[in-house]
Design a protein around this nucleic acid. Structure first.
Lengths: 341, 341
DNA sequence: GTGAAAGCGCTAACAG
DNA sequence: CTGTTAGCGCTTTCAC
C-alpha cells in the first residue's frame, strides 16, 4: 500500500506535486506529470479517499435512499443512477428502507449524517417533516425521483397526464365502461402517485362526459398478484363488467391479463387492458402501456447533482425538462367487441 | 456541523475523552461519559467518518459487487446484505456490473481499490484471474455468494443436490420423460450454476436407469421470456413431448407454465413443471420449486465478514454451514396423466 | 480516568 | 512550475 510519499520519492518531486499531477488541479509541467504518472503506475498507487476527503471536504460518494430493491421501477432507477455515478467517478452508497421502521430511523438519524456523502438521491420517497428537515439540514444537494418532496428538486413524470393519456387511448378505441385499478390508501404514504393517476383517469372520463362509476375502481398494491385479485373482482361481476381496464402499473395490468385468461375472457377480444411503466415483462404479455424510462430518470438525477456539485457555464438549462413518457400500443387493447357493446 | 472539539468544550473535557466516551474504547468514568453523551446530543454531533477512518484504518463500509440489479435473486441477496450491514453500523457501497465492459473494468481497477472499503461481497460473480488477484491484493476480507470464487470463501447452495432433488420429485411422481431448461453457455461465464444444475438433473435420471435424451434439453437465459420460448420448443414437438419440465430457475418455469397454457396444455394435467428459487411470483403461479433463501444468504455473508472483521471467541463455528434449501410442492406437479403414459 | 500531543494520508495556500 | 507548511477531524499512545 504505497502512499503519496513513496510516489513523490520515486518521481523525485514533492508530495504536493504528486497530488497536483494526479488530481489535475494546479499546473504541473508535462515532464514531471508523466514522471509522476509513471511512478504511481509502477507502485500501483491509489489515493486514500478518506485522506483526500478529509482534506478537501469532498467525498465523491452519493447516497441513494430507496424504499424497495425488488421492484422493477426502483431497481431500474437505481441502475441508471449507479451507471451515471460511476462514470463521474462517484461511489453509490445504498440505503434501503425496506427493513422496517427502526432501519428507516437509523438511516435518517445516523447514516445519512456521517459526513460521508456529497449528495443524496431519494427515490419515490415521501418523507416525514422530521426526516425532510434532517436531510435539508445537512445542507447537501438532494434530488428526488418519482416522489414529491416539498422543498426538494424532484424528477417525475406527470402522473395525471400519463393516466389521462392511457385512459384516452381506451376512450378513443370506443370504450365507455373503463375500470381502474389503482393504489390503496396506505400505499399513498410512500408513493403519492396513486391519487394523481386516478385523477388523470377521472379527468379523461369526465372530459368526454362519462361520469365516474365508483364500482369500477379497485385498489391494489401494485403487484401482479394484487392486480390479479382486483381484476377478478372487476371482471367477475356479471352486472357491471367493464370492457376495458386501466391499471396504474404494468404489474397490475399483467395481473389483470392473467385474471382475464383464467376467467375465459380474451384480451383484447372481451377486455382491453392498459398499464403504465413499460415493465420488462410488458412486451412479453403484449401489454399496451405508457412507458416511462426509469433508468433515464436515475441518470438525470445524477446529472442534476453533478451540475450542483460542479457548477459549470451552461447549467440549469436542461434541468427543468419534463420527463418523457410514451404511449406504446401493443396487443392488449382494441376496440370493444360490438356483441357486448 | 459541530466537531469533536465543540463537544469537548461543552462537556468540559478533552477531545480524547470525548472520543473514548463515544466510541466505547478505553475507560471513562460514568459521570463524564453521560456528560459527553449529553453534550454530543445537544449539539447534534456526528463523527466525521472520514476523519475517523483515516485515524483508525477502518471505514465501516463494505462494497457489494453484483452483476444485475433487476433480477429477483440478486436484489434479494442485496436486500439481505443491506439490512444486516446496517444493523452492524456499516454502509453498503454498491457496484453494479451491468453497465458493460468499461464499467466493469473501472470498478475493478479504480473503485474497489480506493481504500474506502473494509470488505467486499461478490454476488454470483465469476471473476477473471486478473480481477481476482486484484481483489485479493487489497487484502481485505471478501466473501462470495452464489458463485464459485477460487480462493475465496463462498456461500452457495449445492446446485447439483438441489437439481437432483427437483428431478427426483418428478421421478417419484412417476414421470419418465423429463425435460430440462437450463442456462446457455455464455451465461455460464458469470454464473457457473447452469452446469451444476444440469449435472444434478442428469444424475437423478441416471440413478434410476433413465438415459439422458439431449432432445429434452433446451437452453434459455433464466428469464420468463426465455423459459417461454424454450418450453414452446419442448412442448410443441408432437413426437417427443415430455410429461414434465424441470427448469433451472423459477422464472423459466413460469415461462413454461405460460407456454403450456398458450398451447392448450394443462398444468399439471398434461405437463408438470418444477423450478428452483421460490421466486416471489411462484406461489401465485402455484409453482412447485426448490426454495433457496437469498436474503438469508446475504445476511450470512455479512455475518461471516463481521466475524472476520471483529474476531470473537466462538467464530468459525457457524461459518461452514451448508445453505438451506427446501422442496416446496405446489400445484404445478402431479403424477403424469395415465392416458398419455 | 483523563489530557497532551503526535500522527492517519492527503490537499491547498503561500512562497519562491 | 514546484516545494514548504499548515491543517482536515479524529484516535491513540504516553504520561500524569
Amino acid at each position: 500500500m504505497p502512499g503519496i510519499h513513496e510516489v513523490a520519492q520515486l518521481a523525485g518531486v514533492s508530495t504536493a506535486t504528486v497530488s497536483r499531477a494526479l488530481s489535475g488541479n494546479g499546473h504541473v509541467s508535462p515532464a514531471t506529470r508523466t514522471a509522476v504518472l509513471m511512478a504511481a503506475e509502477e507502485l500501483g498507487y491509489v489515493v486514500s479517499s478518506n485522506a483526500s476527503s478529509l482534506a478537501t471536504g469532498k467525498t465523491k460518494n452519493v447516497g441513494v435512499v430507496i424504499p424497495f430493491l425488488n421492484r422493477w421501477f426502483f431497481s431500474a432507477v437505481l441502475e441508471g443512477a449507479e451507471t451515471a455515478l460511476l462514470s463521474h467517478g462517484y461511489d453509490l452508497t445504498l440505503y434501503n428502507l425496506g427493513g422496517g421502521a427502526e432501519q428507516r430511523q437509523s438511516v435518517f438519524e445516523h447514516f445519512l449524517l456521517r459526513k460521508r456523502l456529497d449528495a443524496v438521491i431519494a427515490i419515490s420517497l415521501e418523507l416525514t417533516p422530521t426526516e425532510l428537515t434532517g436531510l435539508l439540514n445537512i445542507n447537501k444537494p438532494i434530488v428526488g425521483v418519482g416522489g414529491p418532496l416539498r422543498g426538494v428538486r424532484t424528477l417525475s413524470i406527470d402522473d395525471v397526464e400519463v393516466a389521462q393519456l392511457a385512459t384516452e387511448h381506451l376512450l378513443s378505441l370506443g370504450h365507455r365502461m373503463i375500470a381502474h385499478i389503482g393504489g390503496t390508501k396506505d400505499y399513498e404514504l410512500d408513493f403519492h402517485l396513486p391519487t394523481n393517476r386516478r385523477v388523470g383517469y377521472e379527468g379523461a372520463l369526465e372530459a368526454v362526459g362519462i361520469s365516474v362509476d365508483p364500482r369500477l375502481f379497485q385498489a391494489a398494491d401494485f403487484t401482479i398478484q394484487g392486480g390479479y385479485t382486483a381484476a377478478k373482482q372487476l371482471l367477475g361481476n356479471p352486472r357491471n363488467r367493464p370492457t376495458a381496464v386501466f391499471a396504474a402499473s404494468d404489474e397490475m395490468a399483467i395481473g389483470t391479463i392473467l385474471a382475464a385468461r383464467d376467467m375465459g375472457l380474451s384480451v383484447p377480444g372481451d377486455i382491453s387492458v392498459i398499464g403504465i411503466d413499460d415493465h420488462e415483462l410488458s412486451e412479453f404479455f403484449g401489454l399496451s402501456t405508457v412507458a416511462q424510462f426509469p433508468a433515464l430518470q436515475g441518470r438525470l438525477a445524477v446529472e442534476i447533482l453533478m451540475d450542483q456539485l460542479h457548477p459549470t457555464s451552461r447549467s440549469q438549462g436542461s434541468l427543468n425538462t419534463a420527463l418523457p413518457y410514451e404511449l406504446i400500443v401493443r396487443s392488449s387493447t382494441a376496440r370493444p367487441n360490438p356483441r357486448r357493446r
